[in-house]
């Protein structure tokens, strides 16, 4: 858990009753506001639990200090500003077995942002892939 602005219960979500309603119905909140955040939902499994514990909250924790990971019963909920990346070669080493980017996709339950694979890396980014930047093929990597 974290008190980071990306937390599940941050901002307006921390408010209740009339206080929540006042902000929810405020004039400035009647249109969408651009966000550079990304959200990732990982279904709990042996592999995902280890990737969360050992990589995202372990070795790679400093890669993106905005990353928040929360336990939502059947899944891990992740939110970060910018991007979240998982290197499946690194995961394979920690898991002690072959683990490709397609094995990782087995338990990726939802993405809000532009998610893609390149080689053995899974990325979800706030960038508009295909518009701001081209999606790369393996040989250009």
């Amino acid at each position: 858990m974290s008190n980071n602005a990306n937390s599940y219960g941050a901002g307006i979500m921390a408010k209740t009753g009339k206080e929540f309603a006042d902000e929810y119905f405020a004039e400035e909140n009647q249109v969408v506001h651009e966000s550079n955040d990304v959200v990732l939902v990982l279904k709990k499994s042996d592999e995902m639990n280890i990737i969360v514990d050992e990589i995202l909250l372990g070795d790679r924790k400093d890669d993106n200090p905005t990353l928040v990971i929360e336990d939502r019963a059947g899944y891990w909920w992740l939110k970060a500003t910018g991007k979240i990346e998982v290197d499946c070669e690194e995961a394979a080493e920690i898991l002690g077995k072959e683990f490709s980017v397609y094995d990782f996709l087995v338990d990726v339950s939802s993405t809000i942002g532009r998610a893609y694979t390149l080689g053995e890396t899974f990325t979800i980014t706030s960038e508009l892939m295909g518009l701001d930047r081209k999606l790369e093929n393996l040989d250009a990597a």
Partner: peptide, 21 residues
């Protein structure tokens, strides 16, 4: 309404539609 505000308004609205502005 909080579930809706998170997934529909903030995340879909901001991260998908807002970024395409």
């Amino acid at each position: 309404v909080k579930t809706w505000n998170r997934w529909v308004y903030e995340d879909w609205g901001g991260i998908w539609i807002g970024r395409l502005g």
